[in-house]
Amino acid sequence: MDSLVVLVLCLSCLLLLSLWRQSSGRGKLPPGPTPLPVIGNILQIGIKDISKSLTNLSKVYGPVFTLYFGLKPIVVLHGYEAVKEALIDLGEEFSGRGIFPLAERANRGFGIVFSNGKKWKEIRRFSLMTLRNFGMGKRSIEDRVQEEARCLVEELRKTKASPCDPTFILGCAPCNVICSIIFHKRFDYKDQQFLNLMEKLNENIKILSSPWIQICNNFSPIIDYFPGTHNKLLKNVAFMKSYILEKVKEHQESMDMNNPQDFIDCFLMKMEKEKHNQPSEFTIESLENTAVDLFGAGTETTSTTLRYALLLLLKHPEVTAKVQEEIERVIGRNRSPCMQDRSHMPYTDAVVHEVQRYIDLLPTSLPHAVTCDIKFRNYLIPKGTTILISLTSVLHDNKEFPNPEMFDPHHFLDEGGNFKKSKYFMPFSAGKRICVGEALAGMELFLFLTSILQNFNLKSLVDPKNLDTTPVVNGFASVPPFYQLCFIPV
């Protein structure tokens, strides 16, 4: 009986604490739906499609509103004006990374994606500088992407125009580009180590996009005490870190300090320079996690976009025909596509942009946080508050993009057929937390897609009208449904 009384008292205290925290903070924060004790607004949000729920709530509470995930307040920004004001106009104040408990377990605050403060700034600055020195957006990395595009075309030829699921092959190409940047090595598509790495990356994007992960991140005790797919994700990350550590040891034994070959060499050189400046942010643990982040951000996002792009091109054969006509006119058949071609191919450029806009790969991006107490639109948001960005509300804005739910390359073309930029184009987020590999991803999408369409016609196994382009999961990332196609050599 005594234990029951204690339990009831504990629960009562928890409920009172929950109510007090919510009521004391709500006077400062933007308005929002009334949260339930302990669980907050979790029942009012469709976990399978958070973005749709945010759109519905914005119609009631406006472009800036507050939700509670458990006891934790989260300020939501919906629509271009609110997102721009926060991420661009007040970029420094909104540059923090929001709480992501599962990532905390995986990387302990290291790396480039989930770190904060001085650690994040130094690692991000170093990573950007190193990638630029190796030619991100310049010639040397373009050579690597072109080489991988040629290998991709050869792998597709091996399908002999038979029906195939493109998931694996389209994942190999961007993964190999990242391998060449980090390890100075590309792998054969049949290499077992490479296959294991690909498998872990593919599993992780599916797990991260599941409703279960949303629950884990908002009720963090689940991570330590409950079984579930989150444990598989943590094991996959541990596998990748151990693999990278092996490569780091190989580099330490063979590195030429006067001739760095890749990202690992550059990081080890930085560690050597910083060894007298303790404590340094440049450690082996930081290198492991930064490399894992580059793999995660640079492989599955690009391969998922490529997979979605081919599905949309199957669905819209008239678009595919126009792209192939432009390829034939500008590039021809006797040389590989290059980035200089893009400025002469406005329709193809528009298609690449429209694919990214339409699929809305990361509907709410990753959570941000404010780095200080900030007054925002007459609300006071306390330091450390998590900020949720609705990228969907920007990419699918119906004023900027008429009929935003329709796939239409003319969203990025003017009346004369010239490519038209849009400030609403934010597939990689915006501001200080914009994806480090934005330029690389854009290069890969253009070169891989043009190389495929230069060499193959795409054949659907069903009537294009019957192809479903609805994402199968739409949590962290929008993942396309399973499909097969035939690559018919031109």
Rank of each mutant, 00 (worst) to 15 (best):
V76S: 02
K121R: 13
M269H: 15
F110E: 10
P409G: 01
F428Q: 05
I50K: 05
N334H: 06
Q454W: 06
E288S: 14
N41G: 03
L245Q: 13
E155I: 04
S254L: 08
N41R: 02
F456A: 00
K28P: 12
C164D: 01
Y61S: 01
D463C: 06
N107G: 14
R21W: 08
A106M: 10
L29G: 03
D143Y: 07
V76R: 00
I215K: 02
D373S: 06
L131F: 10
G332R: 04
D191M: 01
N116H: 13
Y379L: 04
C486H: 09
S12R: 00
L268Q: 03
A149E: 00
M269T: 15
I327T: 05
T392F: 06
L29T: 03
C13T: 14
Q192I: 12
H78V: 11
W20T: 03
A309Q: 01
L201V: 14
I215A: 10
T229N: 15
M339I: 08
R335F: 03
P317L: 05
L9Q: 01
R125G: 12
N107M: 07
E81I: 02
P30D: 01
N466T: 15
V330S: 06
V76Y: 04
D373T: 07
E122C: 09
E285Y: 03
P481C: 01
V323Y: 03
V472M: 12
S210T: 10
P211T: 09
S451E: 10
L361A: 14
P471K: 10
S162D: 15
P317A: 10
E93S: 13
S140R: 07
S286T: 10
F428E: 05
C151P: 01
V177F: 00
S180A: 07
F267K: 05
F110S: 15
P409D: 00
K315A: 08
K190A: 11
E104W: 11
F126G: 04
V479T: 09
L90Q: 14
T305N: 03
R329H: 10
L102D: 06
R329N: 15
F219R: 03
L201M: 08
A309T: 08
E415T: 15
K121E: 15
P464G: 06
V292Q: 11
F446Q: 00
A441V: 09
L312A: 03
I99N: 15
R132S: 14
L366S: 05
E325L: 14
S478F: 06
N133S: 14
S209P: 05
I327R: 01
T450P: 01
C172Q: 09
R124D: 03
G70V: 02
K249R: 15
L362R: 09
V60R: 14
H368G: 08
L311P: 01
S53T: 11
I488S: 09
S254R: 11
G91M: 05
C216D: 02
K247L: 12
R335W: 02
L77C: 06
P471V: 04
F239C: 13
L268P: 04
K241S: 06
K399P: 06
R144K: 10
Y424Q: 12
F401S: 04
P317Q: 08
L36I: 15
L287A: 05
G98T: 11
L208P: 04
G416V: 14
P35M: 04
P211D: 07
W120M: 11
P317C: 02
L311F: 03
G62T: 00
M345I: 01
L391P: 11
G442E: 15
K241M: 02
K185P: 01
M136R: 15
L29M: 12
R108N: 09
L131I: 14
F94D: 04
P382G: 02
M443L: 06
V248R: 04
K118F: 11
L306T: 02
K270G: 06
I181W: 06
D256E: 15
V292E: 04
K185G: 06
L449W: 00
I45N: 02
Y243K: 08
I39N: 03
T304W: 07
K160W: 07
F69S: 09
S343T: 08
L7T: 10
M269A: 13
P279I: 12
L440P: 01
N466Q: 09
V177C: 04
E85L: 06
E246P: 03
N258Q: 12
Q214S: 15
S286W: 06
I387C: 11
S280D: 13
L458Q: 00
I264Q: 03
P382R: 07
D414V: 05
V352Y: 04
N457T: 09
A106G: 11
F183L: 08
H353C: 11
F239T: 14
V292L: 15
N196T: 13
K160H: 10
F482H: 08
N466M: 09
T299R: 02
C338S: 14
R157G: 06
H411R: 11
D408M: 05
V462L: 09
P480A: 10
P317E: 07
F482C: 13
I123Y: 10
S162I: 07
K118W: 06
Q261G: 10
N398P: 13
S303L: 03
G32S: 04
S58T: 07
T290Y: 09
Q214C: 12
C164L: 11
Q484W: 04
A321P: 03
F482Y: 07
C266S: 15
I39L: 12
V462C: 11
D49W: 01
L7I: 09
V237T: 15
M443G: 02
L313Y: 01
L268D: 05
S53K: 15
T283C: 13
L131R: 03
V38M: 10
T364D: 04
C175T: 11
R125E: 10
S127E: 05
I47H: 08
H230C: 07
L156G: 00
I205E: 10
Y80S: 05
V38K: 02
N231Q: 15
Q484I: 03
R26A: 11
I47S: 11
K247Q: 15
A106S: 08
D188L: 05
T469F: 04
F446V: 00
H251R: 13
T304M: 15
E281R: 09
C175L: 12
L131P: 02
T469W: 03
A297Q: 15
A321M: 13
L445F: 09
L294S: 01
Y243G: 02
C10Y: 03
G111A: 04
M136A: 14
T283L: 05
T34G: 05
L77E: 01
I223F: 11
